[in-house]
Design a binder for these strands. Structure first.
Lengths: 147, 147
DNA sequence: TATCAAGTGGGAAAAAGTGGGAAACAGGTG
DNA sequence: CACCTGTTTCCCACTTTTTCCCACTTGATA
């Protein structure tokens, strides 16, 4: 399971090294996608195939016939990339994804169960504060939903 | 799976090189059709036969009986072309398709699961912004539908 | 303090993308 | 039917980007 928080640099060639702790779990190829709340998601291949199956077309109909589905798929797939982890554990973050998450020379790498998230580190710091404050009330809410 | 976003030039001879990542999947011949939302669709032969099966007489009814379907299919099939990928991975985009998608010297190539889309790059940039804003609500909506 | 592991940076080789010339082809015209 | 003209196709060459590899730095550890 992927847990913890790290801050790593993104060098001039858009390379970012993955924390050693995560490398085994992630494997040789990962998928980077636009995330929600202004970050990037990093999935293992296995995770990604689950996600894409669930959110993608569905085999029955043509996914491009429905406008909502087109929009969602273009966002989801069009801005995703599969990236090979290099021999010393770095990934390459394409420019268009860097821009999307507002990444400059550094980024925060967050382990969230079975995916990573990459955040602009300042944004992450803010988000953390906010999330911390809401934790108790959210716990109640989520707890309630399941019953 | 076709994912990711690239910007390539369309040269004076209407040639556009396909991103290396896509070439294996696409094979030697592709089908280019007018797309939806002012772009072009590019299908593999395999994918195209699925599409045409589903749009065509397909499973249940004769497609030409419905006026809407006739119109849609005339547009889609009538303006489709099959194009051979040249020895160094380029395709030829006919003038009438260029005009349809408002393509000039460059175009954005987007991988959307099992098809490519070719966009006027400025239009794509705009579309992306819009799609990004909608992403979270669409995620909720589509996520809900599947359960 | 020497050593090792993790992370960072940079140079050289390889690959991808782009552009253009010449051959091949088609189509029209004298 | 030969000829001319314009288009398409094929091939080669250049430029830029990416990839691969090696080396340095830092910080923790024995």
């Amino acid at each position: 399971m992927l847990i913890g928080e790290y801050t790593h640099t993104i060098d001039s060639k858009n390379r970012m090294s993955l924390p050693v702790k995560f490398r085994k779990v992630l494997g040789k190829i990962v998928i980077i996608t636009p995330g929600l709340d202004n970050c990037l998601f990093v999935f293992t291949l296995a995770e990604w195939s689950k996600v894409s199956k669930k959110l993608g077309s569905g085999d029955e109909e043509l996914s491009f016939l429905k406008s909502d589905q087109r929009t969602f798929n273009r966002n989801m797939f069009g801005q995703a990339v599969d990236v090979e982890v290099d021999s010393i554990g770095r990934i390459l973050i394409p420019d268009f994804l860097k821009e999307l998450a507002d990444l400059k020379n550094t980024g925060a790498i967050i382990g969230v169960q079975d995916r990573l998230e990459i955040w602009n580190d300042k944004v992450w710091q803010e988000y953390k504060k906010m999330a911390g404050k809401q934790a108790e009330s959210l716990a109640e809410k989520l707890g309630g939903q399941k019953e």
